[in-house]
Nucleic acid binder design. Structure first.
Lengths: 215, 215
DNA sequence: TAGATTGTTAATCGATTAACAATC
DNA sequence: TAGATTGTTAATCGATTAACAATC
């Protein structure tokens, strides 16, 4: 349970394993070898075995891996067996899009509140939840056992809001604002810088590199 | 101009350099040393110099780097001095959010069309552009010099659409659908798997790792 | 048991950091 | 010129791949 120091490179691959295993499971496939999985996923079998062995042995020599078992185990490692309540801060298009994305619920992420400063948006309904005023934020976080805050607001407000959230005791921030947040290490930050991603695409498009990442 | 084989790790850092340099420029700072920049960005000065030197020398010994010059050069490397026309496929919340994001235009990415299969959405206006039927897609791509397609549709349709786009001659796909696209190497694919990102956050949140990535 | 495939150690590769000579 | 700081080579570190003994 308390495996230490797994590299972020490994963690970053877990969701993709989880996705492939879920698909295999849905197709009714019961067992798979690292070799077979490596062909489907276009990674080396060696990497697959190394990755899984960071968390202890999930397989069986001579047999391979049981798909459903492995799927569940990776889900647990990712914390998907637990429930996480999140709020969205910034009810613009992106905030509303994320609030509306029902698949998060399936993984245990519960959309619990959405906030904005704009009076025209406050009171509007996003998948059954009314947009609240930012004035209610701190109290709401504390009263509703919120783990995760999703920042979908302009970068000008993001740093200040992140600090408020920190003092409200939030555990993790999913940051879509185009700014780096520097918080204490007990608050996890995951950045999604969409324009960075687009620039990367732009680079590769212009160079037309032939060696490109498979996933 | 034809620097070869720059690693994706380096490319992935360029947009962040670009952002910091843009901010420095806007604050009126004219020169910066790798040391100073490294402190602001929380990376090593050595990495900064190595990264820049992949593209030739942008600095001057004893002086450092000229902020505006470096900013412009990195912009050029990323292809931001060129214009790229893009279409969005899937006019749901996320598609509309990306269509509405005007900052892309500032970097040369021109929102040129948006498509959907849903009759209730077709004809709707997204930042001055009417949602078109998917029936018009192929002709539109060919007739309007479209470089990039943004896939914001359910994964069930994504693979098929990607293949259509490939035969229409698209150069790059920014893929938000939760599926891996396997296309020929002359088409660049950049994936933004939001749920993967959220799962990564979930892992780190549950482990509360102390060593976390700074950006 | 024999065959298959994992778990794990060892080898390789690539990326990051350190060091310093070149030079502005 | 002396000081500062790059550009670049060398050293280190970490991640990936290969190999194979363990074992189901």
């Amino acid at each position: 349970m308390d495996q230490k120091d797994i590299s972020q490179a490994v963690i970053g691959r877990l969701p993709r394993y989880f996705r492939y295993l879920g698909e295999l499971k849905d197709t009714g496939i019961e067992r798979i070898s690292s070799q077979e999985l490596s062909e489907r996923m276009k990674v080396t079998a060696s990497q697959i075995r190394q990755d899984f062995n960071n968390f202890g042995g999930f397989g069986q020599q001579g047999y391979g891996y049981n798909v459903e078992y492995l799927y569940n185990e990776i889900g647990k490692i990712l914390g998907l067996d637990k429930t996480h309540r999140f709020v969205i801060i910034g009810a613009g298009n992106l905030g509303q899009a994320l609030g509306g994305y029902i698949n998060f619920e399936r993984r245990g992420f519960i959309f619990s509140g959405i906030f904005d400063v704009n009076k025209d948006i406050i009171g509007k309904d996003v998948r059954g939840i009314k947009v609240r005023s930012m004035d209610e934020l701190d109290e709401f976080i504390k009263a509703n056992d919120i783990d995760i805050a999703v920042l979908t607001l302009p970068k000008t407000g993001a740093v200040e809001v992140a600090e408020r959230l920190a003092s409200d005791g939030i555990k993790a921030i999913w940051n879509f604002a185009h700014v780096d947040l520097h918080l204490t290490n007990d608050i996890q930050v995951e950045n999604v810088h969409l324009s960075d991603s687009l620039m990367k695409l732009s680079y590769n498009l212009n160079r037309n590199t032939s060696e490109n990442d498979v996933f």
